[in-house]
Structure formats: C-alpha cells, structure tokens
C-alpha cells in the first residue's frame, strides 16, 4: 500500500466502516463507562451509617481496604484462585482443544457441543448440583461411606478446593473454544515438518505449536482469568459464608451493608487488579517468546 492519498473508494469505505462501529461504541459508552464513572465518583464519597452516602472527595474507602488485613486477604485469595483456575484450565484445556481441532471424526460437532453443553446450565444451578454431589450427605460421601472406604464424610463443600473445582468447570469451555479455533488455523503439516526435521513431540510443542497457538492461549487465559476474578455464584454457593472472594464482597457492600462508597472502591480495586495482572501476564508471555 502506498502512503499517498488513498483512493476515493477506499476512503469512502473507511468512512462507512467508521459509521458502522458507532452504535456499538455508543452502547458501550452509555452502558459501561457511564455507570463506571458514577461508581468511581461514589467511591470517593463518605459513608455515614444511618445517613447512607455523604458527598465528599476523600480516599478513605481505599485506605480502609488497603489497611485492613481482612480485605487484603480477600484480594489475595481471589487472585490465587483466579491464577490457579486459569493455569488448570490451560493445562486441562490444551490437550482437549488439540484433539478437537485435529480430529477427523464424524462426531466432531458433537464433541464441540459436549464441551459447550455445561454452559447451558447456569452457574447457580450448576453450583447447586455440586452441593448435592459433594455435600457431607451428598452422593459422593454417601457412596464412599456406603462402600466403607471412609467413615467420616469428606469435607469438600465450603473449602477452597470446592471453589476451584467449580470455577474450573465453568471456565474450561471458554479456554477450550479459544484454543481450538487457533489450533485449527495451524496447518498440520507444519507440525509434520518439525517432526521430519528431528523434533520430538515435546520439542515440536515448545518450538512450533505453543508459539503459533499463542494468540489463542492469550485470549483463553485472559477470558478465564477475568471470569475467575469476578466469580460470584460459585464462591458463594460452594465456598460458603466464610470463604470470601472479591465478587461476593462487592455485592455484600452494596446489597447488605448499603455501603455504596466502599462497594464502589472495592469494585475499582478488583477491576484494576484484573487489568494489571492481565497486562503483566501478557508482557511476560510475549517476552518469553522473543
């Protein structure tokens, strides 16, 4: 392409393209940025019990969060859970996505649907299902005890493990679909070329498949990480009242404590942490593959 004045047709087309993105842009601006701006403004207000919200311009809500070990702990737990879930999704999802992308089976579409199927069941319904399965009088413990393998019910419900399993199960399809579409775009014979040049499967994966699948890996990890950071139903239902994560914490401040300024501050801390960690991970991965 020349840098000289673009042809008239091309120019017109760019204008049209510009027009076409306007509705979506306006929608995002009004529905997302507007409320966020208001929320941010609220987070700088004061909360006076009994008086609800008092106009101010202070950072005491943020100070409160960062000086209280309880809240810092919730943030750390949220990040830990999100990182673990994302890694688990990547490790579990890659082989699955690879098989889905490479299979020549007639049942490929069925396999893809099987991966997506869990998404048809909402988070809350699914978590309720897990409760009946893993509760102390649930199906798993009942059968293990019935077989005499254990005499005390296993404590799975209301632990971090339960939450991890729950979030991984919810997020895995997103990871698999992101990876599958990218792997499908990598020609099979590029892998074969690597083999014929002496690369064993591990070397082929490290030098060819991983770098070529990187866009999908990034998309999948970002998606699952954001979902895990903001998880709500799963930690509430499977983690129980003592297992706090950021999502339920925000909700609690708004709906139960009526403390909108502090809820707003927590929302912004959650959002900022998510963005920073995502960007950091992105840079680390990119640098590795230089």
């Amino acid at each position: 392409m020349s840098t000289a004045a673009p042809e008239a047709v091309a120019g017109a087309r760019t204008n049209l393209a510009g027009l076409l993105v306007v509705p979506a842009t306006l929608f995002v601006a009004f529905m997302l940025i507007g409320p966020l701006a208001i929320l941010f403004r609220y987070s700088l207000n004061k909360f006076v019990p009994g008086q609800f919200m008092v106009d101010a311009l202070v950072i005491e809500n943020y100070v409160k969060f960062f000086t209280d070990a309880y809240y810092l702990n919730v943030l750390a737990r949220t990040v830990r859970v999100a990182v673990l879930c994302t890694l688990a999704c990547l490790i579990l999802g890659f082989p699955l996505a690879y098989v889905l992308a490479r299979t020549q089976s007639r049942f490929k579409n069925l396999l893809v649907i099987a991966v997506v199927l869990p998404l048809f069941v909402g988070n809350a319904v699914r978590a309720a299902g897990w409760m009946t399965a893993f509760g102390s009088r649930g199906a798993l413990n009942a059968s293990l005890m019935g077989m005499g393998l254990i005499d005390q019910p296993l404590e799975i419900m209301y632990t971090e493990v339960a939450v991890l399993i729950g979030i991984i199960a919810v997020n895995l399809p997103f990871m698999v679909l992101s990876l599958q579409s990218v792997i499908e775009g990598i020609p099979r014979n590029v892998e074969e070329a690597a083999f014929s040049l002496g690369a064993n499967p591990a070397a082929m994966f490290r030098r060819v498949l991983w770098p070529l699948a990187l866009p999908g890996i990034l998309a999948g990890t970002i998606l699952t990480f954001i979902l895990a950071m903001n998880a709500y139903a799963t930690p509430v239902l499977l983690g129980g009242p003592k297992f706090q994560m950021m999502g339920p914490l925000v909700y609690g401040q708004f709906a139960q404590q009526n403390n909108w300024p502090f809820g707003g501050a927590i929302s912004f801390i959650l959002m900022t942490a998510t963005i920073l960690l995502t960007v950091a991970a992105h840079f680390i991965v990119q640098r590795r593959n230089r």
Binding site: P187, N189, A193, P211, L212
Partner: peptide
C-alpha cells in the same frame, strides 16, 4: 511438502 510448511513465526 507441496505446501512448503515453513514455520511462519
């Protein structure tokens, strides 16, 4: 290969 199969990256 017929399609060369070079490593694009």
């Amino acid at each position: 290969f017929q399609s060369y199969a070079l490593f694009p990256h």
